[in-house]
Design a protein around this nucleic acid. Structure first.
Length: 845
RNA sequence: GCCGGAGUGGCGGAAUCGGCAUACGCGAUCGACUCAAAAUCGAUUGCCCGAAAGGGCUUGUGGGUUCGAAUCCCACCUCCGGCACCA
């Protein structure tokens, strides 16, 4: 066995795994299914295939694969599939630029991803591979759309939506970041358009409540989703405008401050504005203001510290609690998207309303006693957002606001002027896109079936699915989907009346595709149904999901919504898709996010080529705790490569000095530890058991791979330190062989090729077929311990002491120490603290 | 502003229950091997004083609890992430 040449070794084992289909698992009832084992579904987020995989992919799949291997050897039947999220804008934008059809570029990229995953040696069940852009897959995406449509969970309506002018498509709220398109960074504009939505808001409460059902998710991901859903409890209160004969409901979380409402504000987009000011002197100024707001960007409007602007309407509403008439304004600090697009303004107890009142010289009234010394610019200590005794509030005066809260709402309800209400920040999920490279929405528009001049929306029957994407020439969007140009495809027959109809030309957001792929893996070749229910019931939920934290809201929330909706439709038996979630941190280079423009992109392929996949994989797991980010350092890669080479050479030396590993079965065969080791042999065998124990606990405790790998490094270091004194006798040689085989076994989840090779050479066995090793508690314990002796809490000496020594003996040992004597001599001993097996602390004065 | 997370050697990081701070890796220095270099093997490596023995200091800052604090409590500072005119 010569020097460590990863290429040949890695290819050798990859061929074995491919030929023997080592990582394939069968569904219950199929041949090859092992019903004796508990199942474990280990899944990494599927990649979006664009270009080549980057280091983020390497880390995600290296981490996931380590978990999959650990679970397999822990006795689980592990399903570990792979697929591609292959619809989406980048491929289409590339098509617009180059004329190359998106399918061609996408499939080329998929081939490249698949090749690299194989080169990395990821243990994937390739029989379950899928790609979301294939008709075999999106047929069922469309099928699910129809189930949601039947239930009223998919609907089409006109609404103000976020439009990206560059990508010429609408975006989901979640895809707008700081007023800009998440993908291309272009400022989005608001447009009023007919679009398709999924009614995710119906599930807001369940999405919140069912965090309870999750086993282990990072707390911050749950918090982010909770904030995104943004549930607030309060009341809806109706303010009446007599002059215009209009009722204005508002949402408030503070009905206890109703008596302090001194004005009223509508959002510039409020539909009743026009009616309120038509033919009045305010008409001109209001229209001008609304237009100015409409022209301003979301970014400008949302800017912090922005001065409050607005225009009075010259109209007023009645405060339902005291009948006071208060003026109406239009102002852009009120958002049409939240609540009812109208607010009651309580400047005495709300900072924003206070600012507006200052700018427009409006009265500020106190209705809650108390003050906030920091936040209050006003001499009276207003605005005061806190709690306290009510005042200026009619019959509620003197009551504590929290106590009176419900009573006020009940009273309003009895008057017909209000009711308890809950509001969410979450909006319905806008799923239609005016783009080509996505799953067509399976409905047609039929004028004949329609009424009042509006065509009817007719769903395509299941048996006509999939509605396949037509081939087209020009992928550039022109404000409507490029599909609209495929006239032959658009013109169709109404499945209901048989008359002429036109197909929907929008396609679905790619997040729809990725909201259910983890179920399709369970039965990926089914042509009769999206999945077999028994198969889904067996494998779901995903036991361990792994991916980037950037999907904390979008993908993870959509997938949760889909799972619940599909359970409601009767297709699934679980309420939550992912029982445990692990989010890996991002790898940076020179402290910066990798990007082509910065020229700091690390290509995994280069490192796999130079050092081998095992080194690259082990390195990304060794950089630091995998949930945290880390900076890529070439020196670190070399350090890991050095360690793997050391293990490799140790294996070669063991073979040379003690003969080749047998091919016999286990038992007391090669690679087993000596029966009763003594001295250095015992020390090394004990170290191996320590490493087993440490690595096992690190795996179980949140995947602390960096310290698990460090433990194996320590084992190899000790083997190097001790080996030359051990080869001479049989027990010593067996100890070295056992140490090296154990290191191979423990490193296998990270470096599967080297782990397999070394383990086989030393033991004749296939490491992945061996159960995960178990540490022998007897070898973990040692006869003596290092007793730490402190004087007044300061370390003064370390003494070897019998592990089981009683308190008195430890104290005697401590007091006898010269180094200790020096510090206690001539002083009064005040206290003696003894922690058996660990430490003695002598307190003197 | 609100909600999370984190501050430990020259660097990445470890210390899992309040008990040896700095495991492991990188880097650096020295030695062995070599004609030489690389590779490899071995030793040293928190800071300060000291020739040494030894002593003092050290986990963002300041205080507290405790025989004992990186770890618990209080106040503050800095950095990172998320949300942000959400009524």
């Amino acid at each position: 066995m010569s020097g460590y040449e990863p290429k040949a070794v890695e290819r050798k084992w990859q061929r074995v795994w491919a030929e023997e289909r080592t990582w394939e698992v069968a569904n219950p009832g199929q041949p090859g299914h092992d019903a004796s084992k508990p199942k474990a579904y280990v899944l990494e987020m599927l990649p979006y295939p664009s270009g080549e995989p980057h280091v983020g992919h390497l880390k995600c799949y290296a981490v996931g694969d380590a978990i999959a291997h650990f679970r397999r050897r822990g006795g689980f039947e592990v399903i570990h599939p792979m697929g591609y999220d292959s619809f989406g804008l980048p491929a289409e934008n590339n098509a617009i630029k180059t004329g190359e059809p998106p399918r061609v570029a996408t499939e080329r990229s998929i081939a490249s991803f698949r090749r690299q995953f194989e080169e990395w040696g990821i243990s994937i069940d390739w029989s379950r591979e899928l790609a979301t852009h294939t008709p075999e897959y999106y047929r069922w995406t469309q099928w699910i759309f129809l189930r949601l449509f039947e239930r009223g969970l998919a609907y089409r309506t006109e609404a103000p939506v976020q439009w990206c002018p560059k990508d010429a498509t609408v975006l989901a709220n979640e895809q707008v970041v700081d007023g800009r398109c998440e993908r291309c960074g272009t400022e989005v504009i608001q447009r009023k358009l007919e679009q398709w939505f999924f009614r995710i808001t119906d599930y807001a409460d369940r999405l919140l409540a069912d965090f309870e059902l999750l086993e282990s998710w990072p707390e911050h991901v749950i918090t982010m989703q909770r904030n995104w859903i943004g549930r607030s409890e309060g009341a809806e209160v109706v303010f009446r405008c007599e002059e215009a004969d209009l009722d204005f409901p508002v949402f408030t979380t503070r009905p206890d401050t109703l008596f302090g409402a001194t004005f009223f504000v509508l959002a510039p987009e409020h539909p009743d504005l026009e009616r309120l000011v038509a033919g009045t002197p305010a008409e001109g100024p209001v229209r001008e203001y609304v237009n100015r707001v409409a022209r301003s960007s979301a970014e400008e409007r949302g800017a912090e510290d922005r001065e409050k602007t607005g225009v009075p309407l010259g109209r007023s509403v009645l405060n339902p609690v005291n009948g006071k008439s208060i003026p109406i304004f239009v102002a852009d600090y009120v958002l049409m998207e939240y609540g009812t697009g109208a607010i009651m303004a309580v400047p005495g107890h709300d900072a924003r309303d206070y600012e507006f009142a200052q700018a427009f010289d409006l009265p500020v009234e106190r209705v809650i006693e108390g003050e906030d010394p920091e936040a209050a610019p006003d001499a009276r200590g207003l605005p005061y957002p806190g709690d306290g005794q009510m005042t200026n509030s009619g019959r509620f005066d003197g009551r504590h606001n929290r106590e009176a809260y419900e009573e006020i709402v009940t009273w309003l309800e009895s008057e017909g002027r209000g009711r308890p209400a809950v509001n969410y920040r979450l909006r319905d999920w806008l799923v239609s896109r005016q783009r080509y490279w996505g799953a067509p929405i399976p409905v047609v528009y039929c004028a004949q079936c329609g009424a009042d001049g509006a065509p009817a929306i007719v769903p395509v029957p299941d048996e006509q699915l999939p509605i396949e994407l037509p081939e087209i020439e020009d992928y550039a969007p022109q404000g409507k989907s490029p599909l609209a140009a495929a006239e032959d495809w658009v013109a169709t027959e109404c499945p209901r009346c048989g008359g002429p109809a036109r197909r929907e030309t929008d396609t679905m957001d790619t997040f729809v595709d990725s909201s259910w792929y983890f179920i399709r893996y369970l039965d990926p070749r089914n042509t009769e149904a999206p999945w077999d229910r028994a198969a889904a019931a067996h494998w779901l939920p995903v036991d361990q999901y792994i991916g980037g934290v950037e999907h904390a809201i979008l993908h993870l929330m959509y997938a949760r919504f889909f799972t619940k909706a599909l359970a409601d439709v009767g297709e699934l038996e679980v309420q939550e898709p992912f029982a445990n979630l692990f989010t890996q941190g991002m790898i940076t280079r020179d402290g910066a996010k990798m990007s082509k423009s910065k020229g700091n992109v690390v290509s995994p392929g280069d490192y796999v080529e130079r050092y081998g996949a095992d080194t690259a994989r082990t390195y990304v797991c060794f950089m630091g705790p995998p949930e945290r980010g880390g900076d890529w350092a070439d020196e670190g890669v070399e350090g890991v490569n050095r360690f793997l080479s050391r293990l490799w050479r140790l294996c070669g030396e063991v073979e040379e000095r003690t003969g080749p590993g047998g091919t016999g079965p286990g038992g007391s065969g090669p690679g087993d530890p000596p029966a009763a080791p003594e001295g250095a042999a015992r020390e090394l065998v004990a170290k191996a058991h320590w490493a087993i124990d440490k690595a096992t606990r690190d795996f179980q405790r949140g995947f602390q791979f960096n310290t698990a790998i460090a433990a194996v490094m320590e084992l190899v270091n000790d083997a190097y330190r001790l080996k030359d004194g051990l080869y001479g006798e049989a027990a010593g040689a067996a100890a070295v062989r056992f140490a090296a085989a154990t290191a191979a076994s423990l490193i296998f989840p990270f470096a599967p090729h080297l782990g397999s090779e070394v383990y086989q050479r030393l033991t004749g066995e296939r490491v992945w077929e061996q159960p995960w090793p178990v540490a022998d508690p007897e070898l973990l314990a040692s006869d003596t311990v290092t007793l730490v002796v402190q004087v007044n809490g300061k370390l003064r000496d370390r003494i070897e002491a019998p592990a089981e020594a009683p308190r008195e003996e430890l104290l005697a040992l401590a007091r006898r120490s010269e180094k200790v004597v020096r510090h206690i001599d001539g002083k009064e001993l005040v206290k003696e603290v003894v922690v058996p097996g660990k430490l003695v602390n002598l307190v003197v004065r």
